[in-house]
Design a protein around this nucleic acid. Structure first.
Length: 484
RNA sequence: GGAUGAGUAGCUCAAUGGUAGAGCAAUGGCCUGUUAAGCCGUCGGUUGAAAGUUCGAUCCUUUCUUCAUCCGCCA
């Protein structure tokens, strides 16, 4: 006899109650008045109210119905006379599958701070907020595949361990089996002899699958990667993780405009999908955000509610400006004139977060795509724009800036012209001999192509309204923290 | 890596240079159609760690540590 005879609570709540026999299994959120169990099984943010006839239930069993306990309950589904819900389950039999010592269980039926829940990340998904966040995360992940698969993109697995340290996207985690106690084999000059290491060379965890993605785009046309990515940067912010997930599509025969079109359509698709599939979760998160912002002074509150914001982003084209235009806007801005910016503005600077925030949150009040950055501040593989005035060379780069998040997408049209690419690599001291496999794409059947990277957690942040990136990944890896 | 702020009961917070208090939770009893918090009682803390100043430190100083926020790096 199979054990899984339950109906998921999401389905139960949608049923027309006719007193039908129903079996549910889930975890106790609260037990009120010795009579009402709020039961949740993770299928929905909503709880099922289970009514216990305490007069016919043993004292011993009642005592075991505690917050966090796992129960199997069979009973009859009936209309609820209470005001908080449409249906409820009149319990006829309750079985405790797993006790939860109320004295020890950290989750209490009350509001906890996000900091506390972060420290209890192994249990926080049992809360309404994190249940909603991670169901939304799941929906977005699924939508990523759906979007690209519908367009005929090939899901491509770029390696996680890489010997290339030329990807130019920051510090990398070393991968080695050599001993760390100082007995590792050395070269004559005292450096570690990686020829003796597992891979016979120094290897790291990937910071990007892009370069390998480009190889695949030269075979399949359109591909995308979606996997974990690692950065060993000592970044302590609400939008950086040492281990995060990134989606990197790479398309042959795309120029920078095609690239922008795809990225915009992609982001809007993800939001639209989630709004359709996880309406309940978003409603809860919307409410949560409103509650939370009540504590803030008026001017710190969001102008739009979460759902309102998402609808707005789906309904409106993203603003598209060039880097040069962005600089113009900043130079003419009130904060610049009143010297409110901490960092100076002039053509050639990398846009600082305060500048990006001004453009996105104050000036345009919508997502902004900035293109045409100075070549000097961007990566070697980005395509040099033709016809630049001397000293103002730009590349076909694009960043998508989202309100409250900042950079959510970074991408570019790639430099497909062999000579120009090699010249840039040499200028930027990228070892071309180690990258011959990459340069081969430019030797054999090169074509215009483009791609971008979307930070998956930043996307989840944007959709859920969670302000700290550590709250949208199950177990965050950040400097000094690899708990769980 | 830099700046700022913060670590007091399981949680959320309060307090004073004279060795700490509330609400919730837990727990015992009473109650019983409730929507986190019914009523009465009980338990609960080497005030993040170490050192220093002081007759005396949770409070002042230093170092360390952890966390949060902002900045830098980016997705």
């Amino acid at each position: 006899m199979a054990f899984n005879t339950r109906t998921k609570i999401k389905e139960v709540l949608a049923l027309e109650p006719t007193g039908q026999d129903t079996i549910v299994m889930g975890w106790v959120r609260t037990f009120r008045s010795n009579r009402f169990i709020a039961l949740n099984d993770g299928s929905t943010p909503n709880n099922l109210q289970v009514v216990v006839n305490y007069e016919n239930t043993s004292e011993a069993l009642l005592k075991r119905i505690t917050t966090g306990a796992c129960l199997k309950i069979s009973g009859q589904l009936v209309h609820s006379t209470g005001s908080g819900q449409k249906v409820e389950l009149q319990a006829s039999h309750i079985e405790v599958l797993g006790d939860s010592d109320a004295e020890k269980y950290p989750m209490q039926p009350k509001k906890h701070s996000l900091e506390f829940l972060r420290e209890n990340a192994h249990l926080r998904m049992r809360t309404q907020t994190f249940g909603a966040v991670f169901r939304v995360r799941n929906a977005i992940a699924y939508a990523v595949h759906q979007f690209f698969q519908q367009k005929g993109f090939v899901y491509w697995h770029s390696p996680i361990i890489t010997a290339s340290d030329a990807e130019g996207a920051g510090e990398m985690f070393k991968v080695t089996t050599l001993p760390l106690d100082g007995t590792a084999p050395k070269n004559d000059d005292g450096s570690i002899n990686f020829k003796e290491d597992f891979f016979g060379k120094a290897t790291n965890l990937t910071v990007s699958g892009q370069l390998e993605g480009e190889l695949a785009a030269m075979a399949f046309g359109d591909i995308y990667t979606f996997g974990p990515t690692f950065r060993a940067e000592n970044s302590n912010t609400t939008r950086h993780l040492a281990e995060f997930w990134m989606i990197e599509p790479e398309m042959a025969f795309y120029d920078i405009e095609d690239n922008q079109n795809l990225a915009e359509e992609f982001i809007q698709y993800l939001i639209r999908y989630t709004m359709a599939q996880n309406a309940e979760d978003l409603r809860f998160l919307d409410e949560r955000l409103k509650e939370e912002e009540k504590a803030l002074p008026q001017d710190k509150r969001s102008e739009m509610g979460l759902i309102e914001k998402l609808q707005f982003v789906v309904d409106n084209k993203f603003e598209r400006i060039t880097y040069t235009e962005a600089i113009e806007i900043l130079l003419n801005s009130t904060p610049y004139k009143k010297k409110k910016f901490q960092y100076d503005v002039q053509w050639g600077i990398d846009l600082q977060s305060e500048h990006e925030r001004f453009l996105v949150e104050k000036h345009f009040k919508k997502p902004v795509i900035v293109t045409g950055y100075p070549a000097a501040i961007k990566a070697f593989y980005m395509r040099l724009n033709d016809g630049c005035e001397p000293g103002r060379e730009t590349v076909a780069a694009m960043d998508i800036l989202a309100p409250g998040i900042g950079e959510i997408v970074g991408g570019s049209q790639r430099e497909e012209r062999y000579e120009k690419l090699v010249a840039r690599m040499e200028a930027m001291h990228i070892p071309t001999h180690e990258m011959s496999w990459y340069l081969d794409t430019r030797r054999f059947g090169a074509c215009p192509h483009a791609g971008f990277g979307l930070g998956f957690e930043r996307m989840v942040q944007f959709v859920t309204g969670m302000t700290n990136i550590r709250d949208v990944i199950p177990f965050a890896r950040t400097p000094k923290n690899a708990e769980f």
